[in-house]
Amino acid sequence: MSTENLLILAAIIFTIGAIGVMVRRNALVIFMSVEMMLNSANLAMVAFALAWGGLEGQVASFFVMVVAAAEVVVGLSIIMIIFRTRRSTSVDAASLLKL
């Protein structure tokens, strides 16, 4: 597969993730969409690493995976406590803080 195709795939996955964040109302699904965006960036970095023939991009994608795992720990715990408090993970329900 050429770099270009990989990049187009990465851009498509990123866009799906971004749209998911904006249209879905469930905090968990939003979070999964964000993870998808992170992984699309990983794909792009690996594709560029192939094109440039270096290892930097591949190493970076490992760092991103570690960061994503750390984010899961923090994010899921926040979503969990919200769910236990409100019995719902809808972000529309979280509207006490308004303008």
Partner: peptide
């Protein structure tokens, strides 16, 4: 309020 702030900040 605080939990909601945490959720919003995180997402």
């Amino acid at each position: 309020l605080s939990q909601e702030a945490g959720l919003k900040y995180f997402l």
